[in-house]
């Protein structure tokens, strides 16, 4: 029982990080209908920025927001200079999603290579700002550590902020309207192009947070080829799809579900099946609900 609760705690923590990545992917999908693999590159690059800041200031709490800003900037840069012209030219009505996917894959590759050029063989270090020693409960150390608690806190804070922005502010209303119905929004005076760039920016910030947290939660350091980031991208995307790709709530549910199930499999079945399990979970969910847990039937094009 003790072990099981620990497994759950581990799963929820990593799942919450997948949720952030899933949110990054959902935000871009909602605003421009692009499956954004460059999100992995953005997360990676902002983690390096965070590591650099951490190195010179020594403060995680300065590094994190600056990393988020870097992620937002890079992500909106990508939207503005690559995806916008690409989508403008192919016209909004095309159902073609393959080329944008490939374009973002190309951007991911370029980002990694550029990081290699800049950092060479140096690694980016995000040392945990808090202890990762578990709290002691009735003499035994549990999987919940100050570090994990902080990670959960950051993710939760970010999610609450996003929910408030989306549900309670005019900006949030514009973001939602522009993603569901760009033409109506335009006719209502919303600057849809700018709003889309903003959607990418928020996505970049969420991805940056995911990257930085993933790094402190894991190895504590990162390289341009880090396998952990491919994982983060893949699991984030799988979580987004499980959740229904359109929905922020779905992304969170998808991420946490995935995190918990994978932690259980890792603990009780065996590490080599984790990836296959992710595939099976995805297939099972989609067989029962082809549009994800919170998906809308017909997946209307916005």
């Amino acid at each position: 029982m003790f072990e099981f609760i620990n497994t759950l705690l581990i799963g929820i923590t990593s799942g919450s990080i997948y949720s952030l990545m899933a949110i990054a992917i959902v935000l871009v999908w909602r605003s421009t209908r692009v499956v954004n693999f460059a999100a992995g590159g953005v997360a990676l690059a902002s983690t390096f920025v965070g590591a650099t800041i951490l190195e010179s200031t020594g403060s995680f709490w300065i590094a994190l927001p600056i990393g988020m800003l870097a992620g937002a900037a890079l992500s909106s840069f990508i939207e503005y200079f690559f995806l916008r012209p690409l989508l403008k030219r192919s016209g909004e009505k095309t159902q073609e999603i393959f080329l944008p996917i490939i374009a973002t894959l190309g951007i991911l590759g370029v980002i990694k290579a550029v990081l290699h050029f800049i950092y060479g063989d140096k690694i980016g270090v995000i040392s945990p700002p808090l202890s990762d020693k578990g709290f002691i409960v009735s003499g035994e150390s549990i999987a919940l550590s100050p570090l994990r608690l902080m990670i959960l806190g950051v993710v939760l804070a970010l999610m609450i902020t996003l929910t408030l922005i989306f549900q309670r502010t005019n900006l949030g209303l514009s973001l939602r309207a522009a993603s569901f119905a760009p033409e109506i929004s335009r006719l209502s005076g919303i600057r849809v192009d700018a709003i889309r760039t903003l959607g990418w920016a928020i996505s970049g910030a969420a991805g940056a947070t995911a990257g930085i947290l993933q790094t402190t939660n894991g190895a504590g350091s990162v390289t341009p080829e880090a396998f952990e980031f491919s994982l983060l991208l893949v699991f984030g995307f799988v979580a987004a799809v499980i959740g229904g790709i359109e929905s922020l709530v779905g992304a969170v549910i998808g991420g946490v579900t995935l995190g918990i199930i994978l932690a259980i499999i890792l603990m009780y079945v065996g590490g080599s099946l984790v990836f296959f399990a992710a595939f099976i979970i995805l297939i099972l969910v989609l067989l029962l609900r082809p549009n994800g847990i919170i998906g809308v039937k017909g997946g209307r094009r916005a």
Binding site: N170, A177, A181, S185, S188
Partner: peptide, 20 residues
């Protein structure tokens, strides 16, 4: 020409958003 995913109230507010 309404946005089905939004509430009636939000649909209306949308029209006045630009006036801030």
């Amino acid at each position: 020409s309404v946005i089905p995913e939004l509430t009636v109230s939000e649909n209306l507010e949308l029209g006045a958003l630009w006036r801030r």
